[in-house]
Simulated scan of single mutants.
Amino acid sequence: MAEEAHSAASAYRAHAAAFQDKSVVYAYRYRPIYPSATFDLLVQLMGTRPGAVLDVGCGSGDIARQLVPRVERVDAVDFSSQMLERGRQLPNGDHPALRWLYGRIEEVQLQPPYALVTAGESMHWLDWHIVMPLLHDVLQDGAYLAMVGRQITPDIWSLLGDVVPRYRADFYLPQSQERQEQGLFQQVGESTTEAYAFVQSLADVVESYHSRAGFSRERMGPLKAAAFDREAEQALLAAYPDGVVPFQVRAQITWGVPQKKTPDVL
């Protein structure tokens, strides 16, 4: 059973390579931004500790670019050079205190200690047995890892009914809770921001799916991607005949302390 779980986790992480695909990088612009309160809370989590922030799996810098004017320095790490190049072109992408670092978090040259580590919807792609001890070592004493996720209502995974599971090219593996139970992350707190309204056209909603690993146009192929687009737009039009989808967007921030070792090997 343990070998099967490890194999499934490895296969799941392999899907993260889709974030190197041009179609995924292009479509990422259709994801809603994080609420501004997200960054107020992240700064508060640093307390009185001055210093740098490490953003793990930064993508195009949705967190790093908003945080960098408010902290000493942000080191933004991602293994997709295309995502980093896109981030450099966006607001604050050329900020002098923002260092874009290309590579995997366990391989790049970091400059610790860090007063905060952030991860925006990226930790589920990583092997916590490798990454959590690393983050433990690069954090200042008393500093936190803050995992940030978007809560979008209506939920995009249920918005299209059975269209999504019939077309997605990956699978979902809920790992975080299991790994917390294994003692790899000691949660300290959790907070959800107030929602803001976000309205998208049907075409933009459909395109937003292609920013996700399971809907990379390169991996789906042109025929399957086009068929998905047609079905998705038809399903949305039936539910939203006025041609737009109103969303409510929140951020959920979970913070705590990465563990050096799991309890069974202490």
Rank of each mutant, 00 (worst) to 15 (best):
S80C: 07
Q140N: 09
W125E: 04
V163N: 00
I33T: 08
E107A: 14
Q20K: 09
D21V: 12
G51W: 07
C58W: 00
T254I: 15
Q20I: 01
P50E: 12
V205S: 06
E85Q: 15
I130M: 10
E3P: 08
R179Q: 13
V53M: 09
P174W: 00
R49N: 10
V164Y: 01
S176W: 07
H136N: 04
I152E: 10
R49W: 01
P154W: 08
F247H: 06
L126I: 09
K224T: 14
W255Y: 12
L266Q: 11
P174T: 02
E4S: 15
N92V: 00
D155A: 14
M132Y: 05
Q109C: 09
V245I: 01
D155K: 07
Y240D: 10
L45S: 02
S122H: 10
R212E: 04
P96A: 06
Q82V: 13
W255L: 00
R179T: 02
Q82N: 10
D264H: 08
D78M: 00
W255T: 06
A5Y: 06
I105M: 04
W128G: 04
F171A: 01
L202Q: 03
F39M: 05
Q259S: 09
H124F: 15
V257E: 12
R212P: 03
R212F: 04
L236R: 06
D62M: 05
A232Y: 12
D242L: 07
E4D: 13
G149Q: 06
S211F: 00
A11H: 11
M220Y: 11
S216I: 04
